[in-house]
């Protein structure tokens, strides 16, 4: 095999908290594929939607601190979190497009002896699997029969507005991965509709109103589970599912998996190493692939 693939890895704050199962499974699967994830040294919060809503240059400089540290490694910066991905990419774009902002960011960074030159390639973990690893290698590693019907849920920020190859309305990267693993992709037209993760803490009623059709549509299309690539989406659809049921009088209990968990299952990696016990809506044996997790 070729030389070991390595990346600079930016887990994002949720990795330690609500997104823990994502973090665990992403690492397990990468290890299995012999891919090295070098955690970015002393990384800080990207600032997400919130910081940019409050401060302009400060939020950008704080995000850019990560880029400045990553730059010296010369490796692609990978994050599994769609919100981190978009925030870091956005700062990078502002940095490229506005010379004025570029200067100000670097002025601020210089207060900590840092400088960003603009050379970091920020990427989402999903596209490392779809582009760098590729379907052939993924399907070659499958050890367990994954006869699952899967609704691929991308959410917004991984495909908009910075996606280059994938369509912002009908992306296919995750669909391809699921098929390569032997899963059945169900027709899921809401795959890029907003789950309102950004609103859930702020206006729960409105937010649940947005999340409900996503669940409903997946169930209607006959999916055994939803698979997603964003910790906020996963939290919203998984942990809040019981609230949707309460508000709308429904009785949904569809598991919401991270795509890394699905890959792990297909590879036959032990469930414990995939954080499956951390999913709120249990990934029940009934819906489980025959033979997965030995």
């Amino acid at each position: 095999m070729a030389t070991k693939q390595s990346y600079i890895y930016y887990p994002g704050c949720s990795a330690e908290a609500t997104g823990k199962p994502y973090e665990i499974s992403a690492r397990a699967v990468c290890e299995h594929l012999d891919i090295e994830l070098k955690e970015l040294a002393d990384w800080n919060c990207c600032g997400a939607t919130a910081y940019l809503s409050v401060e302009d240059i400060a939020s950008m400089a704080v995000a850019a601190r990560n880029l400045a540290i990553a730059e010296s490694t010369g490796l692609d910066l990978i994050t599994p979190c769609s919100a981190c991905y978009i925030t870091l990419s956005k700062v990078d774009h502002y940095f490229e497009d506005y010379p004025d902002i570029r200067t100000k960011i670097n002025n601020a960074l210089s207060a900590a002896g840092l400088e960003y030159k603009g050379g970091v390639n920020v990427r989402h973990l999903l596209y490392v699997f779809s582009e760098d690893i590729g379907m052939e290698r993924l399907s070659g590693m499958v050890r367990a029969d994954l006869s699952l019907r899967v609704a691929p849920y991308y959410g917004c920020q991984v495909v908009r507005p910075f996606t280059e190859r994938d369509s912002p309305d009908v992306p296919f990267a995750m669909d391809e991965i699921i098929s390569a693993l032997g899963g059945d992709v169900v027709d899921y037209p809401l795959k890029t509709k907003c789950c309102s993760g950004a609103l859930i803490g702020i206006d729960e009623k409105t937010a649940l109103g947005l999340a409900k059709p996503l669940i409903e549509c997946a169930v209607r299309s006959g999916a055994d589970c939803i698979v997603t690539c964003c910790p906020l989406c996963q939290l919203n659809l998984d942990a809040y599912q019981y609230k949707i049921n309460k508000v709308y009088g429904t009785n949904y209990h569809i598991p919401v998996l991270f795509f890394t968990q699905l890959i792990g299952l297909a590879f036959g990696i032990d469930e414990g190493r995939l954080g499956l016990n951390m999913n709120i809506v249990p990934y029940r044996p009934a819906a489980r692939a025959k033979g997965a997790s030995g």
Partner: peptide, 18 residues
Amino acid sequence: KARNELRAIIRKAKSESL
């Protein structure tokens, strides 16, 4: 770890707000 540095960045950035 680098909380002090981070705060320095923020302080400087805020003084240059758009």
